[in-house]
C-alpha cells in the first residue's frame, strides 16, 4: 500500500485525479481518497496534524499487515507530498525536491529518511516550522508538516519507506500565491512523482519481508482457532513456518495433520503446539 499525506486539497487534487482516487465516505475525521493500492489523506496544515493523519491512516487501513508481530509495516511506503518555501533561489519555482534531512525548528531535532530512489531529483535538507516563514535572508527550504510525518512514521516504517517530496512554491513570500498556480505546481510534477513512487515501491518489493502467502495465512488462522492458541503461540508458529519455508519445507503438507485436530482445552492445544514446532524443525 502507498500512503500519501498532503496538507491541503490544492496539493492533493492533482494526485487524486492522476491516480483516480475515490473519496472514502466511511472516514469522518479527515478527507481520505483511495484506490486498491493507494490511500491519500489531507491532514491540514502543521506538524501535529500531519502526525495525527499518519497514525489515523495506519489505524484504519493497515490492519493485518503485521502477521509476524513486528512493529514495522515492511511492505508499505508513506509519502508526504506538498509545497515548500525556498530561501535558496538557485532552484526554480516549481522544482520537485526530495528531502534527505528534516529539522524540527521547534525542538531542534533532526530526522533522516534514507533516500535510495529519486536520484534525478535535487536532494536537500528541509526545516519544519510551526508558522509560515517570510524572511528572505534564510538559505533554507521550509515547510510545516515534515517533522510530524517523520516523528509519526519512525515507529511503523523503515527509514527508506518514508519519502518527503516537496515542490518549491515561493521564495519565502507565500502571500502572493493563488490557488490555481499552486495546484499547477504539483500537476506539472506528477509524472516525476509517479516515477519516484514506482522506484520506492519496486525497491520495497525487492526486499519484501519473507512472509506467509494467503493460503498459509488462512491455514494459520484455522489452526489457531481450532487448537485454542494464544496470540503469542500464533506468533511463534508464524515465525517457525517462515523459517521452515526458507529451508524449502512444504509447510502445508507437513502440517496437514493439524487441520483435523480439535481440542477442548488450552493444555491439549499446547501439546499439539509443541508437536507442530517439532515438525517444522
Amino acid at each position: 500500500m502507498v500512503f500519501i499525506v498532503t496538507a491541503l486539497m490544492i496539493e492533493a487534487a492533482p494526485i487524486i485525479e492522476y491516480y483516480s482516487l475515490k473519496k472514502d465516505m466511511s472516514v469522518k475525521a479527515f478527507q481520505v481518497y483511495k484506490n486498491s493500492d493507494m490511500v491519500l489523506i489531507i491532514s491540514g496544515v502543521g506538524k501535529i496534524k500531519s502526525a495525527m493523519a499518519v497514525v489515523h491512516l495506519l489505524s484504519i487501513y493497515n490492519k493485518g499487515s503485521k502477521m509476524d508481530g513486528s512493529d514495522v509495516y515492511s511492505n508499505d511506503i508513506l509519502v508526504n507530498i506538498g509545497l515548500c518555501g525556498a530561501g535558496d533561489s538557485n532552484y526554480d519555482i516549481g522544482r520537485l525536491l526530495i528531502i534527505n534531512k528534516v529539522t524540527d525548528m521547534d525542538t531542534g531535532r533532526d530526522y533522516y529518511p534514507d533516500v535510495f530512489c529519486g536520484k534525478n531529483l535535487p536532494s536537500v535538507s528541509l526545516c519544519c516550522y510551526s508558522r509560515p516563514i517570510k524572511s528572505k535572508d534564510m538559505k533554507v527550504f521550509c515547510d510545516m508538516e515534515s517533522a510530524g510525518i517523520m516523528e509519526a512514521t519512525k515507529k511503523f516504517f523503515y527509514a527508506h519507506q518514508v519519502l518527503i517530496l516537496k515542490v518549491i512554491s515561493d521564495y519565502l513570500a507565500p502571500e502572493k500565491l493563488d490557488k490555481k498556480f499552486l495546484k499547477s505546481l504539483i500537476e506539472n510534477n506528477i509524472t516525476l512523482i509517479d516515477n519516484t513512487l514506482r522506484e520506492v515501491k519496486y525497491l520495497n518489493e525487492k526486499f519484501k519481508k519473507f512472509s506467509l502467502n494467503e493460503e498459509e495465512s488462512k491455514f494459520v488462522e484455522k489452526i489457531v482457532k481450532n487448537l485454542k492458541f494464544t496470540d503469542m503461540m500464533k506468533q511463534i508458529i508464524v515465525k517457525d513456518i517462515v523459517n521452515a519455508k526458507k529451508k524449502g519445507t512444504d509447510v502445508l503438507n507437513v502440517l496437514g495433520f493439524s487441520l483435523e485436530s480439535k481440542v477442548n482445552s488450552k493444555l491439549e492445544g499446547k501439546k499439539i503446539f509443541e508437536h507442530i514446532r517439532q515438525k517444522l524443525k
Binding site: 519512525k154 515507529k155 527509514a159
Partner: peptide
C-alpha cells in the same frame, strides 16, 4: 536510528 533496514 532504530528503523533502518540493514540489508537494503
Amino acid at each position: 536510528r532504530t528503523n533502518q533496514h540493514f540489508q537494503i
